[in-house]
Amino acid sequence: MSLKAFHLVFITASSALAFGCGVWGLKNYWSANGTSLDVLFGLGSLLAGAGLILYERYFLKKLKNVSYL
């Protein structure tokens, strides 16, 4: 597996983490002890997750000639 393939795996894992953090933050916000920091963390994480997916698409385009092996 080349660095290109491993990078794609890593960015996928990172965006999954970001979406997970987003859900975690929003869930905390809607719980009894929710604070504005929770909603900020949740929305920021969801945005970061979306940003990482966009970056992944850019990266795939930029390195389309490099092997996955």
Partner: peptide, 9 residues
């Protein structure tokens, strides 16, 4: 870079 990605993962 592969090592670095592993550490980050």
């Amino acid at each position: 870079g592969l090592f670095w990605h592993f550490v980050d993962l």
